[in-house]
Simulated assay, not measured.
Amino acid sequence: MHLISKISNKALKQVRAARAQKPMVGFVIAGTQKGGTTALDSFLRQHPAVCMPANVKETHFFYEDQHFEGLNHLFGPAYSHYHKYFVPSPQTKIVGEASPSYMWYEKAPERMYKYNPALKVILILRNPVERAFSHWNMATMRESESFDFFEAIRTERERARPKQNRTISYIERGFYVAQIRRIQRFFPDSQIKIFLSEDLRLSHQETLQKIYEFLEISPASVPPQKIVHERTYAKKISEESVSYLRKIFEPEIKHLELIIDRDLSAWLA
Rank of each mutant, 00 (worst) to 15 (best):
R154N: 09
A160D: 12
L12W: 02
S238F: 08
M1Q: 15
V177R: 07
I168R: 15
S144Q: 15
I237R: 11
F27M: 02
E158Y: 09
W136T: 05
N116R: 04
I211Y: 13
Q14D: 05
V228H: 13
N72C: 00
I227N: 10
D189I: 04
A152I: 07
D189N: 10
P90R: 04
E239W: 07
A266F: 10
P100R: 13
S238A: 06
Q184M: 13
W136L: 08
N72G: 01
A11S: 15
K210T: 06
E69L: 10
V242M: 11
L258I: 13
K107Q: 14
P88L: 05
N9E: 13
A178N: 10
Y105P: 00
G26I: 01
G31S: 09
E239L: 08
N116M: 04
R173W: 09
K226R: 14
S238E: 11
M52R: 09
G26P: 03
K93L: 08
H73N: 10
G96V: 05
W267F: 07
Y233V: 14
D148S: 13
R126W: 07
A266T: 11
V28D: 00
Q164R: 13
S190I: 08
I7R: 04
F150M: 10
K236T: 15
P117Q: 08
I122V: 15
K13H: 06
Q91Y: 04
Y82V: 02
H83K: 01
R126Y: 09
H73F: 05
K235R: 12
Y115G: 01
N165A: 14
P53N: 07
H204D: 02
A234G: 08
Y176T: 12
Y113C: 05
Y244N: 05
E69F: 01
L71S: 08
L264E: 04
T207E: 09
K254Y: 13
H60Y: 14
A98Y: 11
A234Q: 15
A39H: 01
M103S: 03
